[in-house]
């Protein structure tokens, strides 16, 4: 007996699909994780001799106290000026004697290029707020990024982010990100 196949009613399919859709809509998190990428210094070897002191002109000291105030190179400073100051320190455009020394290094694309020996030293108190700490970190990273971008513009006529890997590496060699974090003090208390 050939019977005509009965069609399955697909009317509720939409409802089921809606239900699933709503479930995924609710559980979904679309945000991408962003942040400041940093590298911690490796743990000191147990019987390390004292590291040779770095010349004072080569260090850019940033201190943050427990009241979130900044002391940069011995003088109080507003955070808005920090970026410019850091840029001037890293670049040392006029070879001032109180700003870092430079060492001639061979860099691809650039040939022999004087690279600054400057190190930024950041020290905070245990009472410093995380917000201020991130702001300062952000300014210091921004200083490096701006310098790299300027150099990329000058040499290749493109933004740093648009360059290919080799060229980025060359620029990174000229402006290596050297931010060192000293162990924090505990002056302000908890």
């Amino acid at each position: 007996m050939a019977r005509k196949l009965q069609e399955i009613n697909a009317g509720s399919m939409a409802d089921i699909a809606f239900l699933l859709l709503i479930f995924f809509l609710v559980t979904t998190t679309m945000d991408v994780d962003t942040g400041l990428v940093r590298k911690l210094p490796p743990p000191p070897p147990p019987n390390q001799e004292k590291t040779p002191p770095i010349k004072e002109r080569n260090v850019f000291i940033v201190l943050i106290n427990s009241k979130d105030q900044l002391l940069v190179e011995g003088e109080p400073m507003d955070i808005h000026q920090l970026r410019e100051k850091a840029k001037e320190f890293i670049k040392n455009p006029y070879d001032k004697p109180n700003l870092p020394e430079k060492k001639i290094i061979k860099v691809p694309y650039f040939g022999n290029y004087p690279v600054s020996k400057g190190v930024i030293s950041l020290q905070n108190d245990r009472g410093t707020s995380y917000k201020r700490y991130i702001e300062v970190q952000n300014e210091l990273v921004a200083a490096y990024n701006e310098l790299r971008d300027e150099l990329a513009m000058q040499k290749f006529g493109k933004h740093y982010s648009e360059l290919d890997k080799d060229k980025q590496a060359a620029i990174k060699k000229i402006y290596p990100q050297r931010i060192s974090e000293a162990e924090p003090k505990n002056v302000g208390g908890k």
């Binding site: 400041l36 990428v37 911690l40 210094p41 009472g127 970190q137």
Partner: peptide
Amino acid sequence: KMGIVTDVKQELRKVNALKINY
């Protein structure tokens, strides 16, 4: 406050988990 964050960072250094992201 940074105190607790620093403690965490020191612990991370001890286990050699050096790549971090704030």
